[in-house]
Design a protein around this nucleic acid. Structure first.
Length: 399
DNA sequence: AAAGCGTGGAC
DNA sequence: TGTCCAAGCTT
């Protein structure tokens, strides 16, 4: 009947909330001779089936080992539009450096961005920083358990507010992320395009209905976990799904067409020039961009356009006195969600008069960054690639 | 309210 | 190769 999960080869670590009460909603579990967990498929509603499945199959993730609202907040921001496997490389290091709200609030933005370097969507880090500073300033460093106050924090949208509320505070607050949208679209047979007003309203409405009851944090995570591991975008593993009984998409054979994705815009091609102006010690001049793209990060002078002339303009824009040493070192294709950057990389040698001195760029905020400094400044992956191509002590630039 | 914002993994 | 898209938010 496909109503129960496959026996597990090995016990995955069940995750129980610290205050999670195992009450009426709990599935009856049995452990067979091989130690594998099964759960009965008998009269269980969706919530109970989801919770039982989650208890047996939840991945053991570091942010599931805490109920600290701050830590959960950090994880949720990192996970925005970012895969679990990627976040794993950042989360614990970030928390080790900024163990609580006060630590993060008192850190410089450079420090925060250096910890975020490579993770992408850097505005997240700046908003998290601002949000945590507000929590320290207005709430004594405690993340507000009041939903309205939480939602008003910078960088905390509807999803993140619901995640913190349900997971950290055990509140019956709904959340809809990409996973939940897919699961609920299929479960309820919602066939209007994602992103449309009515679709979103319907999804949040369904999410709110589902989350009502015991263990809202586990329930929300169960929906996301199911979407991430079973109810996947392509080839969903319906044989392993605990809630096939009520799935409209499965019943109507539409798992492959739901949800209906919104149309995507083609990325815009952008020709750019980057200049690695270095001194004799191999330090490269870097500037901080405040524009939307890579805002707050350090990078080598860059400019839209092509050729040596554009490269010199990029240097002049930052009052950097350097001489282009050769033909372009090469091209880098860097693909973002909405742009495809074709970056022509030039190398330039700082003039001896200005090399290594603050006067090299007085007033423009440019600074010489060496390999040893790179770990402490926020740079994009594109910048790392540019430095790599420029042939400057590559290995020492690695993260 | 549609567009902009990074990166990397899967197929 | 290209395409999709992942625990979204802001303007």
């Amino acid at each position: 009947m496909g109503l129960h999960a496959p026996a597990l080869e090995e016990r995955s670590a069940p995750v129980h909330e610290a205050r999670g009460q195992r009450t009426e909603g709990q599935a009856r579990e049995m452990v067979d001779a091989h130690g594998a967990r099964r759960y009965t498929a008998s009269p269980m509603n969706e919530r109970d089936a989801l919770l039982a499945w989650f208890d047996a199959n939840a991945r053991d993730l570091p942010w599931r080992r805490t109920r600290d609202p701050y830590a959960i907040w950090v994880s949720e921001v990192m996970l925005q539009q970012t895969r679990v496997e990627t976040v794993l490389r950042y989360y614990e290091r970030f928390l080790a450096r900024f163990p609580d709200a006060h630590a993060l609030a008192s850190a410089s933005e450079d420090d925060v961005l250096s910890m975020w370097s490579g993770l992408g969507y850097y505005r997240r880090a700046r908003l998290l920083h601002a949000g945590v500073r507000e929590v320290v300033a207005s709430y004594g460093g405690r993340v507000p358990d009041d939903a309205t106050s939480r939602r008003a924090l910078p960088g905390v949208g509807r999803y993140t507010a619901g995640a913190i509320g349900s997971i950290a505070f055990d509140r019956e607050e709904p959340l809809v992320d990409g996973n939940v949208a897919r699961v609920l679209s299929r479960l309820r047979g919602i066939d209007t395009p994602l992103g449309r007003r009515d679709t979103e309203a319907r999804l949040w409405d369904e999410a709110e209905k589902v989350v009502r009851g015991p263990r809202p944090g586990a329930l929300n995570q169960a929906l996301m976990e199911l979407g991430a591991t079973v109810c996947t975008p392509s080839s969903p593993k319906c044989l392993s799904c605990p809630i096939t009984r009520s799935c409209v998409a499965l019943a109507s054979d539409r798992t492959d067409v739901l949800p209906v994705a919104k149309a995507r815009r083609a990325p815009r091609e952008v020709a750019m020039v980057a200049v690695v102006a270095h001194d004799a010690q191999g330090r490269a001049m870097m500037v901080r961009g405040e524009k939307a793209l890579f805002g707050g990060l350090w990078g080598v002078p860059m400019r839209e356009g092509r050729g040596a002339k554009t490269a010199r303009e990029a240097l002049r824009e930052h009052a950097i006195d350097a001489r282009l040493t050769r033909e372009p070192a090469g091209h880098i294709e860097h693909v973002l969600t909405h742009r495809r950057l074709d970056v022509e990389v030039f190398v330039a040698r700082l003039s001896s008069a200005s090399a290594g001195t603050a006067s090299a760029s007085a007033g423009t905020g440019a600074r010489a960054v060496g390999a040893d400094d790179l770990a402490s400044v926020g740079v994009s992956t594109l910048t790392r690639r540019i430095l790599e191509m420029s042939d400057l002590t590559i290995s020492r630039f690695q993260r």
